[in-house]
Amino acid sequence: MATEIDPIHQFQIQNIVPLGSVGGSEIAFTNSAAFMFGIVAVIFFFLTYATGSRSLVPGRLQSVAELAYEFVASTVRSTAGTEGMKFFPLVFSLFIFVFTANMIGMIPYAFTVTSHLVVTAALAALVIGTVIVYGFFRHGTHFLHLFVPSGVPAFLLPFMVLIEIISFLSRPISLSLRLFANMLAGHIAMKVFAGFIVMMAAGGVAGTLGAVLPLSMVVALTALEFLVAFLQAYVFTVLTCIYLNDALHPGH
């Protein structure tokens, strides 16, 4: 075990079932895809089982499901208004998926799906795509008023419009970058500190005693990572709601 400690190894994509190749790049059913299917299966079975009894006084599992619903619903209502509730299925799916992916990533030896930029970028593209499509569908060209801030002097307007456009374009990037960077950095930090324990313990009695320090660090980091896993899922959800709010009420 102590032969080689590679903190990046945990993020490696392994092909499980090759599916051929398209345009020179290999397409395969990977461990990442397997975990995504697993996440969806976990969510599906948990929610169907938890809401199966549908009793008036909820049991333990049912109240967990209801809490999740209430939590996301209140987030949507407070940031996008009651009108935003039409996006509730999307937001709820996103939150539950990201949250479950982060939490499953915390299980030792499990693969963290959200630590790959491709996955988070796809989620962010879905959100921004929804915003753009719904914005144009609902408001037509009025949606472009999003880029024209009100009350700006005429000579500054071109710059402001350009800045607003760049700001809008940077949204999917920051949305995906944040989730990806948080999960990647957290897992690498944990692995590195865990590696210190092994290295120090190999260095005799003094090293073994000294290894208590990185061990306590790893314990603290694990708790922190659980918090980050939830917080990042929450932040992703809140920002999704904020962006959807822009699609509902562009310009003001």
Binding site: I166, S167, S170, R171, I173, R178, L224, L227, V228, V235
Partner: peptide, 21 residues
């Protein structure tokens, strides 16, 4: 923790803007 989250958020917002530019 929330301070760290905020820092991460602000950092990524800023970097994203510059990157897109």
């Amino acid at each position: 923790v929330s301070g760290m989250t905020l820092a991460f958020r602000l950092g990524s917002e800023f970097v994203a803007g510059v990157l897109v530019g």
